[in-house]
Design a protein around this nucleic acid. Structure first.
Lengths: 244, 244
DNA sequence: GCCGGTTCCAAACAAAGGTTAAGGATAGGA
DNA sequence: TCCTATCCTTAACCTTTGTTTGGAACCGGC
């Protein structure tokens, strides 16, 4: 995925509901972006830092996480191309969590200065970016429900289906039976609030039950019907549809 | 707490970092607000609805929650006077969760139209409100960590200390040993992702251990030192200090 | 082709939390 | 005053998840 098509997917997302006019789109397109490559499993910005730029994912996967004083890490969200996972740093100067790559990635950095400038000159763009951070927030809410209320197997498949849905939104097409899910079992545990040993247990169980196979960084859906029944996934909280 | 002082506490919060000028403040003060009284434990806006106004809490306590298909409720956040718990509805048309009062409350309703208008005319105000929703988001992140990583007793005291800290920010003074915490044990369970029976168990244990007494809608701190040790509460994620 | 690290897998046992069930306290209304 | 509803409390038992541990498989670098 190159820079042009990533900007396209960013623009597509921003354009839902908020009606950007051609000048808004041109202004976003002409934002200065510094493209850099990043190794896998490397920090982009860390808890406590004060970044001066935001990071657009052009290619790859990133995660946000927080580590407790006791040293336990909780993964907060998974991010895909076309997203700006640290947009909040535009108005929250000091990072309260970590952002890191999951796999080797191509990132585009946009300075806070140019983004702030743009939002002040073009209220439509400000609304669209604001809305994007609000969807981020809606995903956090569902993540709380997931970790707080669902049993571990349902937690795993819910997160997997959310990721598939979001990949679909930027790539188009129909829901694939196999898709990328580049987390180790340890990271899956950190996302679900369980130990890696237990993550292994439920992954094995889901495979044996013929529902889904999570392995080697991929998800293979084995039984779409039972998967849907288990996950109880309803995509309304992603606010993808501009009509509603 | 009357309307003027609530607007004052709202303004104080919005004014951190974002530098509102006198005209911005005057514009916020002259927003049309419809004040209404609400019973306790009543819905304000519900999942799926499309509200046309936002709700400023003038007096009382509110909570946001989501209910799964299986009928389990997860409380997502607790809100206090001076906050606008459904500000996100300004750009996310359809509610993806419920907002309800916890106790009898006085609410001030502000139309989306007048708020949108204000943000378009005054970029400073837009930034301040945007920032407010980003802090909301930061609190969700910490809530995920709480539910995902901490054992149940630490979860409870962490939430209690967060609430005390936020009450302090609007009321001023020093941290009180006793403060309001108007949740039943069932609601505490819904907030922490545990059953009411287990909530009762840990509350009793914390009381027996002489750490904290949670009862009759109040928190009484018995041992500030051991409480802090258990909660591992660090208020940085609340982004209250304009200097950092 | 070997080596050291990571990841995955698995079993036995321990602890935390869920379930069910039932009695007791409290407060407002008839 | 009694009645009723809600909340709190407790106990016994069961299920899920954590802990500890060890081994197998895989992979990149030498």
């Amino acid at each position: 995925m190159d820079r042009a098509s990533v900007l396209a997917s960013l623009l597509r997302r921003l354009d839902t509901v908020s009606k950007l006019d051609p000048a808004d789109i041109a202004a976003i397109r002409s934002l200065p972006i510094a493209v850099r490559h990043w190794e896998g499993a490397r920090a982009i910005v860390s808890d406590g830092e004060r970044p001066s730029e935001c990071c657009l994912i052009i290619e790859g996967f990133c995660i946000r996480s927080k580590t407790t004083e006791a040293g336990q890490r909780q993964i907060l969200s998974i991010h895909i191309p076309g997203e700006i996972p640290d947009l909040q740093s535009l108005h929250l100067r000091r990072m309260d969590h970590d952002l890191a790559t999951l796999v080797p990635s191509t990132l585009g950095f946009i300075s806070h200065a140019s983004l702030l400038d743009l939002t002040h000159v073009r209220p439509n763009v400000a609304d669209a970016l604001w809305r994007d951070t609000l969807i981020d927030s809606a995903i956090f809410r569902e993540w709380i429900v997931n970790v707080g209320q669902r049993p571990a197997p349902a937690r795993l498949v819910h997160i997997a289906l959310e990721l598939r849905e979001r990949l679909l939104a930027i790539r188009g097409g129909t829901a694939p039976a196999t898709f990328e899910f580049p987390l180790t079992q340890e990271q899956i545990g950190e996302a679900l609030g369980i130990t890696p040993v237990h993550a292994n247990r439920i992954i094995r169980q889901l495979r044996e039950d013929g529902i889904v196979d999570v392995s080697r960084g991929q998800v293979h859906v084995l039984d779409e019907t039972r998967l849907a029944e288990l996950a109880q996934f309803d995509d309304r909280y992603l606010h993808q549809d501009p009509a509603v």
